[in-house]
Amino acid sequence: MRRSDDDQAGSTMMVWIRAHGFTACVLLFVGLFCLGPVLWQAVTSLKPDQDLVRLPPLIPERVTSVHYDRVLLQSSLPRSLANSMVVAASATVTAIVVGAFCAFALARLPIAGKSVILGVALVTSMFPPIAVISPLYLLMREFGLRDTLVAVGLTHAVYSLPLAVWLLTSFFQQLPKELYQAARIDGCTPVQALLTIMLPLARPGLAVAALLVFIYSWNEFMFALTLTASDTTRTAPVAVALFPGLYEIPWGDLAAASLVVTLPVAGLALAFQRHIIAGLTAGSVKG
């Protein structure tokens, strides 16, 4: 019974592969390229330490959760994950709120120097982060924010602001101008019009911008590395980069930590894949 089920499943798959042979080949190739290294990391994370140092076999003979236990229960990684969550969430909220107001002004209000503002945004995002690191560090120390999550979150928010503003401006511009005008005629102040009409209608754009900012902040390394100094403020990527190894690199633990750190962003990316692709390609293809 069970066998015939498998056969059936197997044969429908065969039918599909025969019908879409080219597609299947392309998918296999793309899949191997994109997922191969990650899969190997997953395999590594499940192997007991003594099996890590011998190859073959490629497929592990024994599977263990010891690396995950160690990483999740005995290391400071959970703390770093929590830090990353706080930093990324607050950076996202800040960048989206501040960016939405600015983008709305750029898209619909008669302010002067719009091209200057967008130009400054572009230069800001072009300037190598390494150049601002030391003044930024001094600045944060001046504010008493050295080695705090606030410093990292704020920095991430500001450096993703250009992206958020560009994206949101184009989303606001896509909404019919009449909707804003109607809101004004109906008695809204610009704030009311933004909050009651424009923002609800720009929700898909807000979601895209928020996702991109969140992923940027979660993955960012250089600012997080230099603005934090202790285990209690370290973000996840910094923790992975500075993974403690006393004598030799604990490859199994490192693999487990890598996957754990990747999980939230990979999950987001997969869940909202369509939105993210729309956001990444917005503008670059049309313009």
Binding site: Q181, A182, L201
Partner: peptide
């Protein structure tokens, strides 16, 4: 004043 637009500009949401 009240204004009726050519496109109506009803709030879709």
């Amino acid at each position: 004043v009240a204004l009726v637009f050519q496109s109506y500009a009803l709030y879709p949401h």
